[in-house]
C-alpha cells in the first residue's frame, strides 16, 4: 500500500543546511571508528617525503583491520624516537608501513621482538624504491643505523626512472596539510570519500613496454649509488623484494617473481648489498600452511597489501639473514 506524500513538496534551504551539517557530523563519527587515518605533514629532516600527524590514533577497516598510534615523529612505529641508537632502520612503502594490520603486528614490531634490538619503521605510503633512495642520505644522517633495510615490490625499472634517481630528480610527494586541502583532510569522512572517488574514476594502468626496461648496466649504477650513499655511515645494507601472488584454478599459488630478480641478486652481491627475495618463503608457507601473504578478511585474497602473515614472513626472513650475516 503506497503512502501519499505532499502534492507539492518544498525543501527549504534552512532544512537542507541543518540536515547536511547533522549528517556530516554523524558520518565523521562513523568514520572515526571505520576509517580515520592521520593527515600528511611536512617532514623537516628529509628522511621521508612526508610524515603522518604525530601521536595520532588511527583505525582503518577498508582493507584489513589496522589500528594503532603514530609515534612522536609521525611514523607507524610503536616506540617514540628520542635520539636513541637505531639498530635496524626500515625504509619502505605502504606495505611495510602496515596500515592494514595492528601496529604490533607489522614487520618492525615483530623484528624488534625477534632481534631484541631497536628496529625503527620509516616505511610510509606512496614511497617506492626511487623515493626511498632519494631520501636515503638524510635518513642515514639522522638515524645512523647499524643496518638499513629497503623494501621494494618491483625490480623492473625503466631507464627514465633510474635516470631520475641518479640525477636526484625524483618528484617529491606533497604533504598537503596547508590551506583548504589541509583543512578538509581533517575530516575522516571527506578523506574516505575522496579516496573512494579516486578509486571509482581510476583507470587501469597500461603495462610498461619491454623496451623501456633498464638493463644490467643501469641497475648496477643504481646499486652503486646506494652503496656510495651508505658507505660513510658504515651500515649494512639490505634490499628485499616481495613479489605479488595469485592462485590458479587448481588452488596452487603463483608467485609473480620478476625475471630480473636474479640480476638484482647478483649485482647486489657485487656491490656489498644483501638481497632478499621473498618468493621461496611465500611458496613454502602456502605449501605447508595454506597461507597467503596478501589479502584480508574483507578484500580479495592474495592481493593488495601485506597481511599479518605477510608481515610475519618478512620479519622471519629478515631475522634469518641478519642473524646469518652476524
Amino acid at each position: 500500500m503506497r503512502n501519499r506524500m505532499k502534492n507539492n513538496p518544498s525543501f527549504p534551504i534552512k532544512n537542507i543546511l541543518v540536515s547536511l551539517i547533522a549528517s556530516f557530523i554523524v558520518l565523521n563519527l562513523f568514520c572515526v571508528f571505520y576509517y580515520n587515518v592521520p593527515v600528511h605533514m611536512d617532514c623537516e629532516d628529509g628522511s621521508t617525503d612526508y610524515v603522518w600527524e604525530s601521536n595520532k590514533y588511527y583505525i582503518q577497516m577498508n582493507e584489513g583491520i589496522g589500528y594503532g598510534k603514530t609515534n612522536n615523529e609521525g611514523y607507524m612505529d610503536r616506540d617514540d624516537y628520542r635520539g636513541e641508537k637505531v639498530n635496524v632502520l626500515i625504509l619502505g612503502t605502504s606495505h611495510l608501513q602496515g596500515l592494514s594490520v595492528p601496529l604490533n603486528d607489522n614487520v618492525s614490531s615483530l623484528l624488534q621482538e625477534m632481534l631484541q634490538e631497536n628496529v625503527y619503521n620509516l616505511a610510509i605510503a606512496g614511497h617506492n624504491l626511487k623515493v626511498i633512495i632519494s631520501n636515503l642520505k638524510d635518513a642515514l644522517e639522522k638515524y645512523h643505523p647499524d643496518t638499513v633495510v629497503m623494501e621494494t615490490n618491483n625490480v623492473s625499472f625503466t631507464n627514465n626512472e633510474i635516470k631520475t634517481v641518479l640525477n636526484e630528480a625524483v618528484p617529491q610527494i606533497a604533504s598537503g596539510n596547508e590551506g583548504l586541502v589541509g583543512l578538509l583532510q581533517r575530516s575522516p569522512f571527506l578523506r574516505l570519500a575522496y579516496s573512494q572517488f579516486q578509486s571509482f574514476i581510476a583507470e587501469e594502468r597500461e603495462p610498461k613496454k619491454d623496451k623501456d626496461y633498464a638493463g644490467e648496466e643501469k641497475i648496477n649504477e643504481l646499486l652503486k649509488l646506494i652503496a656510495r650513499i651508505c658507505e660513510p655511515y658504515e651500515c649494512r645494507t639490505v634490499i628485499f623484494y616481495h613479489p605479488t601472488t595469485s592462485l590458479d584454478h587448481n588452488g596452487n599459488i603463483i608467485v609473480n617473481t620478476d625475471e630480473r630478480t636474479g640480476i638484482w641478486s647478483r649485482l647486489c652481491q657485487e656491490n656489498g648489498i644483501l638481497y632478499l627475495d621473498m618468493s621461496e618463503k611465500y611458496l613454502k608457507e602456502y605449501r605447508n600452511n595454506m597461507i597467503l601473504p596478501y589479502g584480508f578478511i574483507n578484500t580479495e585474497i592474495g592481493t593488495g597489501h601485506l597481511n599479518r602473515h605477510g608481515h610475519r614472513m618478512i620479519a622471519e626472513e629478515l631475522f634469518r639473514i641478519l642473524k646469518e650475516e652476524n
Partner: peptide
C-alpha cells in the same frame, strides 16, 4: 524529505 529528520537520515544513507 521535507523534514529535517528525514533529510538527515537520507544524507547519512548516501554518505
Amino acid at each position: 524529505l521535507q523534514t529535517v529528520k528525514g533529510l538527515t537520515l537520507f544524507f547519512i544513507f548516501i554518505g
